[in-house]
Simulated assay, not measured.
Amino acid sequence: MPERPTVGWRHHLEEQRAQLRAGTLRECEGWALEAYTDSFIAAADSALATFEQMLAQVDPQSDPAVLGAVQQVVLALNDINTNHNDASFDTDEREQLCEYIDEALVGAGIDTEALAARHGLKRWEITDRWRDW
Rank of each mutant, 00 (worst) to 15 (best):
R4W: 01
L67T: 02
A69K: 11
A18N: 13
E103N: 15
D45V: 08
A35W: 08
L20A: 08
R26G: 08
E99H: 14
Q19N: 07
N81T: 03
W9K: 04
S88M: 02
G30A: 15
A47D: 14
D63V: 09
L75P: 08
Q16M: 11
Q16T: 06
A65M: 11
N81P: 02
R10L: 09
Q72G: 06
S46E: 15
L97H: 02
E14I: 07
L121H: 09
L121K: 12
T91C: 00
L25A: 07
F40A: 06
E14Q: 14
H119C: 04
L75A: 07
T82S: 12
G107F: 03
W124R: 03
F40W: 12
R94L: 10
D132Y: 08
Q71T: 07
D128W: 07
P60M: 11
A43E: 06
T127K: 00
R131F: 01
Q96I: 00
D102F: 05
T112K: 05
E93G: 02
L33H: 11
E27M: 13
H119L: 09
R94G: 11
Q16H: 06
A65E: 10
W124C: 01
G109I: 03
P60L: 10
L55C: 12
E27V: 15
S62D: 14
N85C: 08
L97C: 05
L55K: 07
L48F: 04
F51V: 07
I110M: 03
P2W: 02
L25D: 07
N85Y: 13
F51S: 01
R26V: 06
Q19M: 13
T91H: 03
L13F: 13
E93D: 14
D79R: 08
V74P: 00
F89W: 08
